[in-house]
């Protein structure tokens, strides 16, 4: 078997910024979920964002994909500000920025066979049924899922399988940016490793630019080249993985590191 060697991300990440957030702010009634958050995602890199509950990480993920509207700020995708666009103008961008949800049970329609769920992406793209079928089987092969599950309902799949389908669906539009919001949080420890390794491989094979969000610092450091730390809606620290781990500046980052060393 031997040990697998992999090249460290962001080895081939260019310096071209593909997605940029500028001063994003979001309030829910009296609660400020995001405070003036700015960050940039470079082409080909995996950017990790670590934060606890209440840090605003999920809100940020949804704001970046325009699932939620920010109160103020800009979202630049390949130079174009998509924050203010109307739904109809947003259509061409929708498929280029994809999302992996945390809870695979909520992310899959319980009353729909997996086949239909995966087909939706192709249907929306106007692809013929035949082409869609072959696309789907390639996806499943790529993700290590047996094709027999296409005719099953989500309730009959394991947690790991469901999450792979969620990832497959996200990849079916051949996005350039993938935002993963706690993709392994509801999975068992050993399955988490499977999914993380899968994401690494996909990143490498497809040249995706990824934002990986998690409360688990170890998972974030495993995947990411650069890491940002979120706390109470603010980005308190951001830097290369090594410098965050070996030379953290912010006291909160230090606290997080301390609690991850078990």
């Amino acid at each position: 078997m031997g040990r697998n060697r992999f090249w460290r991300a962001p080895l081939f990440a260019s310096m071209r910024v593909i997605l940029e957030a500028k001063a994003l702010t979001k309030r829910f009634g009296g609660l400020t979920a995001l405070r003036d958050v700015s960050l940039d995602l470079r082409e080909g890199e995996i950017l990790g964002l670590v934060g606890e509950s209440g840090s605003g990480k999920s809100t940020l993920a949804r704001v970046l994909t325009r699932l939620i509207e920010a109160d103020s700020g800009q979202i630049l995708f390949e130079g174009t500000d998509i924050a203010g666009l109307r739904e109809s103008q947003l259509r061409p961008f929708r498929r280029k920025i994809q999302f992996i949800f945390q809870d695979p049970d909520a992310a899959l329609n319980p009353r729909q066979k997996i086949r239909t769920t995966l087909w939706r992406a192709y249907q929306a793209g106007g692809v013929s049924r035949a082409k869609a079928e072959s696309g789907i089987s390639r996806l499943l092969e790529n993700l290590g899922v047996e094709s027999g599950i296409l005719d099953r309902y989500p309730a009959h799949l394991s947690g790991g399988q469901k999450q792979r389908i969620v990832i497959a669906r996200a990849l079916s539009t051949q996005p350039s940016v993938l935002i993963a919001d706690e993709p392994t949080a509801s999975l068992d420890a050993s399955i988490q490793v499977q999914v993380l390794n899968l994401l690494r491989r996909l990143h490498r094979d497809h040249g995706l630019s990824m934002i990986f969000i998690s409360h688990d610092l170890r998972a974030v450091t495993y995947l990411s080249g650069r890491i940002g730390v979120l706390r109470w809606g603010r980005l308190v620290e951001m830097g290369e993985r090594t410098s965050i781990l070996e030379n953290p500046q912010h006291p909160y980052t230090k606290e997080l590191l301390k609690n991850s060393r078990i």
Binding site: R8, V193, D216, L217, R218, T221, R261
Partner: peptide, 10 residues
């Protein structure tokens, strides 16, 4: 998962 920068796949 290790806490640290490792070049190897877990």
């Amino acid at each position: 998962l290790p806490l640290g920068v490792s070049a190897e796949l877990v």
